[in-house]
């Protein structure tokens, strides 16, 4: 296990350096924040003055090394739009995103695992077909359609939930459901496929011939083995979700990291962008680590390989 952690930490270092370089090149290629910040009503001299006050007239290598050294000390500088410490600002948004994404995950798993199991145990039943159809719709309907629909139904027509915003449980429900539906459909399909595969294995037949009842075969023997690939899929998706929940965040006015990254990119707010991407990278790599550890806990073979390798 220590070996896994160590290799992930090394990986994290390289990932962050790579992300930093790519982001620096892309942002500097795409124009300068000063003209955008000052707007179209400023003269050329005024733009030049602001540019020099902000240090964007320095040579690129000086800007690069300055920012890299800062980033290594976790000092990304001050947000150009916000004026506050960029990392603190990004952490606040990350906390919101985590609530949203973890909420969506819990919602998805809570529905998807039973659905996948039922669909695998009774593959030809009407219930299984119905559940999988619903799951399929969840995956097929894009968020930009489902989210406004949820708002119109639950907030405008029935007045049971708020349209948007963040802060209370009630505010969480619609965005969590909208985001969770897509994940739910995917997890249910993976779960179903894995369960079908596991249930056809020899050791399940052995368990059956041992006289174990169906329920304990499914929960004790099959589910655990089917969970390994499912956890991997969830882990990969979760990493994406933290940065890509931007549509959900925009529609429901959730002040999350995805929306922050989008506005920071449009505004060329380099410090905030660097801090936000840094947090996303740290999150994704740590998530991979957690997934590896979870899989090792679920599957002794992975543990053994880790110990040997």
């Amino acid at each position: 296990m220590a070996r896994i952690v160590l290799s992930r930490l090394v990986q994290l270092g390289f990932t962050l350096l790579g992300v930093f370089i790519v982001l620096f090149v892309i942002t500097r290629m795409s124009g300068d924040p000063v003209a955008l910040l000052i707007g179209p009503s400023a003269s050329t001299e005024q733009i030049a003055q602001l540019r020099s006050a902000m240090g964007f007239d320095r040579p690129l290598w000086a800007q690069f090394t300055g920012e890299l050294l800062g980033a290594m000390r976790l000092d990304f500088g001050v947000s150009l739009r916000g004026g506050q410490d960029a990392l603190t600002l990004a952490l606040g948004h990350l906390a919101v995103s985590l609530q949203l994404v973890v909420g969506a995950l819990v919602f998805a798993v809570a529905l998807a695992v039973p659905v996948g199991v039922v669909a695998a145990v009774w593959p030809r039943s009407l219930l299984a077909r119905l559940l999988m159809s619903v799951a399929f719709i969840g995956q097929a309907v894009p968020i930009f359609f489902s989210a406004p629909l949820l708002i119109l139904l639950f907030a405008v027509a029935w007045h049971v939930l708020p349209t948007s915003g963040w802060g209370t449980w009630a505010h969480m429900i619609l965005p969590v459901v909208a985001l969770g539906m897509v994940l739910m459909a995917k997890v249910a399909r993976v779960m179903r496929a894995q369960m079908l595969e596991v249930l056809s294995q020899d050791y399940i037949r052995t368990a059956r011939s041992k006289g174990l009842d169906g329920w304990s075969i499914v929960t004790v023997h099959a589910l655990r083995n089917a969970m390994v690939p499912t956890v991997t899929v969830i882990g990969a998706d979760l990493g994406q979700l933290i940065g890509s929940a931007v549509l959900t965040e925009s529609i429901f006015a959730v002040p999350g990291l995805g929306h922050m990254l989008l506005t920071a990119a449009l505004a060329r707010d380099y410090p905030l962008l660097q801090a936000g991407i840094f947090l996303t990278a740290v999150f994704v790599v740590s998530l991979n680590l957690v997934v590896d550890m979870l899989c090792a806990m679920l599957d002794p073979r992975i543990r053994a390989a880790g110990a040997r390798g």
């Binding site: 909420g103 819990v106 708020p162 209370t168 449980w169 009630a170």
Partner: peptide, 9 residues
């Protein structure tokens, strides 16, 4: 553990 607590709404 689904968040069912639709609290101070």
């Amino acid at each position: 553990a689904v968040p069912l607590v639709a609290a101070p709404w």
